[in-house]
Write a protein that binds this DNA or RNA. Sequence first.
DNA 1: TTCATTGCAAAAGTTTTGCACGTGC
DNA 2: GCACGTGCAAAACTTTTGCAATGAA
Lengths: 134, 134
Amino acid sequence: MTETQIQKMFRSHSYRATPQRIAIYKYLSEHPTHPDVEEVYQFMLKENPNTSRTTIYNVLKSLEKEGLILAIKIDNERIRYDADTKLHGHFRCNGCNKIFDFLIDDIKCTGIDDFETKTKDMYFSGFCPKCKQK
Amino acid sequence: MTETQIQKMFRSHSYRATPQRIAIYKYLSEHPTHPDVEEVYQFMLKENPNTSRTTIYNVLKSLEKEGLILAIKIDNERIRYDADTKLHGHFRCNGCNKIFDFLIDDIKCTGIDDFETKTKDMYFSGFCPKCKQK
DNA sequence: TTCATTGCAAAAGTTTTGCACGTGC
DNA sequence: GCACGTGCAAAACTTTTGCAATGAA
């Protein structure tokens, strides 16, 4: 996504396209490694040593609220973020602690037919192919 | 579940059956409302005013580690706990903030065939039948 | 008796708040 | 120019740690 496209996206959500917002969104979309607040903060410090943690919290919270990014709560320790908002699952390996994306083809549920579903999050955990051999 | 059964369950997991553990587990299984640390603490205070928050953290963490309870991370603010460890989904209503349980009949995924899956968590959000009318 | 577990107090870590200043529109 | 957003420092809140005392097995 180009900087101009990101700007347009923010403006269509009535957000000002500040350099900080653009940089954070760009970082998330170019690093689909599901980083947490601290990783985003450390990256932003490199760009501008005056960056404040408050800004990271503000930006991530507002982007999540507006549905532009996902908050991934698969980890007990920290919330991770993902700029890919298409429906997909997350697998956490207990060996290497990495998060893997996977496709969700179909889900069949009972008991929420009359509910209005807005978001669907799916978290699996276990061992990835490499770690299960050990 | 009777107190004796809970005791046996703890012992079979090499946990000592302390009154605190039993009371916390009993509270969770009798109150399937997905309470958080603070709610468990407030309940325990009524039973014994000397209860420490540390104990709540210790007990919930160890029970979760051993798979005797589930940690539900559907809420941004707090982790909730559930003594029902059978596979089921959780729906969070953005209107009344309640958590509803639902059945998962089938999930079809692509990309993790070679993974060894130990846990499956599914979180939906949106509006419950009552709240969607407003 | 022994050692896991508890409760307390303090420390560490995380997130929010209040406010002055700066900047996108 | 105006309102939104940022950065800073402090406050608030959450969770962990170290340790002495307790009590389950």
